[in-house]
Amino acid sequence: MRLFHLIYQSQALTAFTQPELVELLRKSWTYNLDHHVTGMLLHAPNGQFLQVLEGEEAAVHQLYHNRIAHDPRHEHLIVLSEGTSATQAFPDWCMSFRASPGLPAQPGYYAPTALYLRVSNLTRATPELKRLLLDFAMGYDDSALCESMIGSKR
């Protein structure tokens, strides 16, 4: 299998509620597991999404062009990067969004603070990808705290 990646960003048309984000997480986790796609989906409080998809080229293209690009819940999709990769940056699939306290454990969910630590410690990601993910996540309310936790590792 030749490893392929696609990174895109988009803007939600309406605000996602926490139950809607949890449902998106559940459906995405299941689909991606079944289709051997890994990566990370980030949802910022301003409604922006940034997603990294990794897997076999046909599976990544199928997911992006036939499902994600036709999802009526977001607009202004921009592919930031795509191409072959030497290694997976994300060996599993996960998602990060602002959750209210008491969210039960969800497979694949990372709190924004945990996202900073996870991304800053990625050994397989290029410096450019790490910078993109960390810059995107700066929109979270606790970004100053996270920035002080990772220091100059960006």
Results as ranks from 00 to 15, higher is better:
44 A>V: 03
4 F>Q: 07
117 L>Y: 03
53 L>V: 01
136 F>T: 00
105 A>P: 13
54 E>Q: 11
128 E>R: 15
27 K>W: 06
76 H>T: 04
38 T>E: 05
57 E>T: 02
64 Y>S: 00
26 R>G: 02
83 G>I: 03
61 H>D: 08
99 A>M: 03
103 L>M: 11
69 A>M: 03
121 N>A: 15
29 W>Q: 06
97 F>S: 12
148 S>C: 02
127 P>V: 02
51 Q>V: 11
29 W>S: 08
62 Q>A: 00
51 Q>P: 05
22 V>S: 08
114 A>M: 12
7 I>N: 05
121 N>R: 14
100 S>W: 15
106 Q>W: 12
104 P>W: 04
58 A>I: 01
70 H>C: 14
123 T>W: 05
19 P>I: 01
102 G>K: 07
43 H>E: 06
103 L>S: 12
90 F>H: 04
57 E>F: 01
101 P>K: 00
2 R>N: 10
80 L>W: 03
64 Y>H: 14
88 Q>R: 14
133 L>F: 07
34 D>F: 00
138 M>G: 06
97 F>M: 11
11 Q>H: 12
24 L>Y: 04
54 E>P: 15
119 V>W: 09
111 A>K: 02
113 T>E: 14
2 R>W: 00
11 Q>F: 04
46 N>K: 02
70 H>G: 08
35 H>C: 05
8 Y>I: 06
74 H>V: 09
77 L>F: 15
144 A>L: 12
136 F>Q: 07
37 V>N: 10
118 R>V: 04
84 T>A: 12
115 L>A: 05
104 P>M: 03
15 A>H: 14
86 A>M: 07
125 A>R: 11
137 A>T: 13
142 D>I: 01
104 P>Q: 03
104 P>H: 06
48 Q>P: 00
82 E>D: 06
48 Q>D: 06
9 Q>P: 05
103 L>T: 14
108 G>Y: 08
14 T>A: 15
131 R>S: 07
100 S>C: 03
38 T>A: 11
35 H>I: 11
30 T>S: 03
68 I>C: 05
61 H>V: 06
120 S>N: 11
30 T>Y: 00
48 Q>C: 08
46 N>P: 11
38 T>P: 09
144 A>Y: 02
60 V>S: 01
54 E>G: 11
36 H>F: 09
122 L>G: 01
147 E>W: 08
146 C>M: 01
9 Q>S: 02
23 E>I: 02
34 D>V: 02
95 M>T: 10
98 R>K: 14
62 Q>V: 08
36 H>R: 15
34 D>C: 03
18 Q>A: 10
53 L>S: 01
125 A>H: 08
133 L>P: 04
109 Y>I: 08
7 I>Q: 06
137 A>G: 12
70 H>V: 10
23 E>K: 10
124 R>C: 04
143 S>Y: 12
113 T>V: 11
145 L>R: 14
13 L>V: 13
52 V>C: 13
19 P>K: 00
55 G>K: 07
106 Q>L: 09
43 H>D: 01
122 L>H: 15
51 Q>D: 14
46 N>H: 04
